[in-house]
């Protein structure tokens, strides 16, 4: 019965490479041992010291409810600067920005919109595609990051990014506002990391925490692969929209009320 043999062989093969879909067309294969452990989100208690948070099944995303975001509030940007040592020199030529408050003016009239704009951590990141030294990379949990050890400061990624989420470090800060996070040396490009260092500890990004604390609660952060998470429930209930979705970059930050 050669056909049966072939079928059983294929079944075995499928079972051996049981993987986790972490994005469109992106599958994270896990070894059988790790699959048995469950590999929960970083928030779960790490029973195994070898468990790597970024190699779990999570795929981080954010929804910003722009109806709740007010024009004057800068809690998220201020928190980001403090958390990640993002400098503000008072000279716009040198200032770094990981998250900015942007004003949108509708062409056909209507009220202005103020929305926080940060790195969208695209599933198809153009910044990563153009990087000549592979300094920009996507982590297993979908966070697009820059390896500043490797970055040569060519700034192709800044041109490629449609969100203007990246800034070049023209000038270094002299002091750390948060000593747990490295600052950047002159000559590299910096951008939002979704506070990966906090996510790995099971916390949420500084901007989201600040937004919740300020009482606005406009930012929802969570695991897009977890059907029970608040962000997935929200996306299923409310129509959300990414900025420049027409570019097909599949951003993981989406908005309502824009």
């Amino acid at each position: 019965m050669p056909e049966m043999d072939r079928r059983s062989l294929l079944k075995m093969g499928a079972a051996a490479i049981a993987g986790t879909v972490i994005g469109n067309g992106v599958t994270l294969y896990t070894s059988p041992a790790r699959a048995e452990e469950g590999g929960g989100p970083p928030g779960a208690a790490a029973t195994n010291a070898l468990e790597i948070p970024s190699k779990g099944k999570a795929r981080w995303g954010m929804v910003i409810d722009n109806n709740k975001c007010t024009a004057q509030c800068t809690a998220c940007t201020a928190a980001c600067r403090t958390e990640n040592n993002v400098p503000l020199f008072g000279d716009e030529r040198y200032d770094g920005h990981w998250i900015r408050k942007v004003t949108l003016t509708p062409e056909r009239g209507g009220p202005e919109k103020h929305l926080p704009l940060l790195c969208n951590h695209c599933d198809q990141p153009p910044c990563q595609h153009v990087c000549p030294v592979a300094a920009t990379f996507t982590r297993h949990d979908g966070i697009v990051m820059i390896d500043k050890h490797r970055c040569i400061g060519c700034r192709y990624c800044m041109i490629a990014c449609p969100y203007k989420a990246r800034t070049f470090v023209f000038k270094e800060t002299s002091e750390w506002t948060n000593k747990d996070v490295p600052k950047r040396a002159h000559g590299v490009v910096e951008k939002c990391t979704f506070c990966a260092h906090l996510i790995d500890q099971g916390k949420i990004p500084a901007c989201v925490e600040a937004c919740n604390k300020s009482g606005e609660g406009a930012m929802i952060f969570g695991d897009l692969n977890n059907p029970g998470s608040a962000i997935v429930k929200y996306i299923r209930a409310v129509a959300t929209k990414g900025i420049r979705e027409d570019l097909g970059l599949e951003p993981k930050v989406s908005y309502t009320g824009i």
């Binding site: 010291a49 790597i52 982590r139 747990d180």
Partner: peptide, 18 residues
Amino acid sequence: ERDNIVREGDRSRKYRIE
């Protein structure tokens, strides 16, 4: 170890500057 820590997000590595 730097590459494993930065790119894989594996902060449990033995040799870290922290």
